[in-house]
C-alpha cells in the first residue's frame, strides 16, 4: 500500500485515493477532424512506461481533488505530486 503525498493534505495512505491512469493526455479540440486511428489513440492507447510514469490520482476520500503524480513503475517510488494545471517536474528514473 502506497503512501501518497496529496498536494493539499500531505501524506495519506493509498486507501483514500483512486488512480485515474496516465496524466497529461489532452482531449483533442476537434474530434470530428480526427481519423478513427487518431481518435482511438486518444481514447485507448497509453504509454505503459517502465520507469517514470506520470499519472492522475484523486484524493477521493480526502479533499476530493484530482492531482498528478510522477511514479517510477519499477520501484513504485513516487518522485513528485503536483496540482492540476502545474507543469510536470523534470525527473529521470
Amino acid at each position: 500500500m502506497f503512501q501518497i503525498d496529496c498536494p493539499f493534505c500531505g501524506p495519506r495512505w493509498q486507501v483514500e485515493f483512486v488512480c485515474g491512469g496516465e496524466a497529461h493526455i489532452e482531449r483533442p479540440i476537434n474530434p470530428d477532424m480526427l481519423s478513427d486511428d487518431e481518435w482511438a489513440d486518444y481514447v485507448f492507447m497509453r504509454t505503459n512506461s517502465k520507469g517514470m510514469h506520470y499519472e492522475r490520482w484523486c484524493h477521493i476520500h480526502g479533499c476530493r481533488q484530482w492531482f498528478n503524480a510522477a511514479r517510477d513503475t519499477v520501484s513504485d517510488k513516487i518522485h513528485a505530486t503536483y496540482r492540476m494545471g502545474e507543469k510536470p517536474p523534470e525527473l529521470s528514473s
Binding site: R56, C58, W66
Partner: peptide
C-alpha cells in the same frame, strides 16, 4: 460525481 469532478478539475478548469 467523480467523473464530473475529473472533467471539471482536469480538463475544463
Amino acid at each position: 460525481h467523480q467523473w464530473l469532478e475529473e472533467w471539471l478539475q482536469c480538463e475544463w478548469l
